Amino acid sequence: MECASGGCWRTITVAPAAGQSPQDLARAMGLAEEQTLPPTLFDPMSVYLGAKPKDGELIVYLGYQ
């Protein structure tokens, strides 16, 4: 986990299955576009999650701001 003045985030690198592109994996995971979830009673900060392809793998990130 990393933190800075704007919040904290976590990343994980995922390798797609043989024959699957990182973009296909992102779509299958529902992460084709970045999502921002508004604050709630139990989580008073905005949560953002998304993914981006890099070098044949998928970098998945989740953060609070």
Rank of each mutant, 00 (worst) to 15 (best):
1 M>G: 14
1 M>Q: 10
1 M>K: 08
2 E>Q: 13
2 E>S: 13
2 E>W: 02
2 E>T: 13
4 A>F: 01
4 A>Y: 03
5 S>L: 06
5 S>Y: 01
5 S>A: 10
6 G>K: 08
6 G>T: 12
6 G>H: 04
6 G>F: 02
6 G>A: 10
6 G>R: 08
7 G>M: 04
7 G>Q: 04
8 C>L: 13
8 C>P: 12
8 C>D: 15
8 C>K: 12
9 W>Q: 15
9 W>D: 15
10 R>E: 10
10 R>A: 11
10 R>W: 05
10 R>L: 10
11 T>A: 03
11 T>H: 00
11 T>S: 05
11 T>I: 04
11 T>W: 00
11 T>F: 01
12 I>N: 07
13 T>L: 13
14 V>Y: 08
15 A>P: 04
15 A>Y: 06
15 A>G: 06
16 P>N: 10
16 P>Q: 11
16 P>I: 10
17 A>Q: 11
17 A>M: 04
17 A>T: 06
18 A>I: 04
18 A>W: 02
19 G>S: 02
19 G>Y: 02
19 G>N: 01
20 Q>E: 11
20 Q>P: 01
20 Q>V: 07
22 P>S: 07
23 Q>R: 08
24 D>T: 06
24 D>L: 00
24 D>W: 00
24 D>C: 01
25 L>F: 08
26 A>S: 13
27 R>Y: 07
28 A>K: 14
29 M>Q: 15
29 M>C: 06
29 M>N: 11
29 M>D: 09
30 G>Y: 14
30 G>P: 09
30 G>E: 13
30 G>L: 10
31 L>G: 03
31 L>T: 05
31 L>F: 05
32 A>R: 12
32 A>Y: 08
32 A>W: 08
34 E>N: 14
34 E>W: 09
35 Q>P: 04
35 Q>E: 15
36 T>S: 07
37 L>V: 10
37 L>T: 11
38 P>M: 00
38 P>L: 01
38 P>H: 00
39 P>E: 05
39 P>I: 04
39 P>T: 05
40 T>S: 07
40 T>H: 00
40 T>M: 00
42 F>A: 04
43 D>H: 06
43 D>S: 07
43 D>V: 08
46 S>T: 06
46 S>A: 12
46 S>R: 07
46 S>I: 00
47 V>K: 05
48 Y>W: 14
49 L>F: 12
50 G>P: 11
50 G>F: 11
51 A>V: 12
51 A>E: 11
51 A>N: 10
52 K>T: 13
53 P>F: 09
53 P>H: 09
53 P>I: 09
54 K>A: 15
54 K>E: 15
54 K>C: 05
55 D>K: 06
56 G>T: 03
56 G>D: 03
56 G>S: 03
56 G>L: 02
57 E>Q: 14
57 E>C: 02
57 E>P: 00
58 L>N: 07
60 V>W: 12
61 Y>L: 06
62 L>E: 09
62 L>H: 07
62 L>K: 10
63 G>L: 04
63 G>D: 07
64 Y>P: 01
64 Y>R: 15
65 Q>V: 07
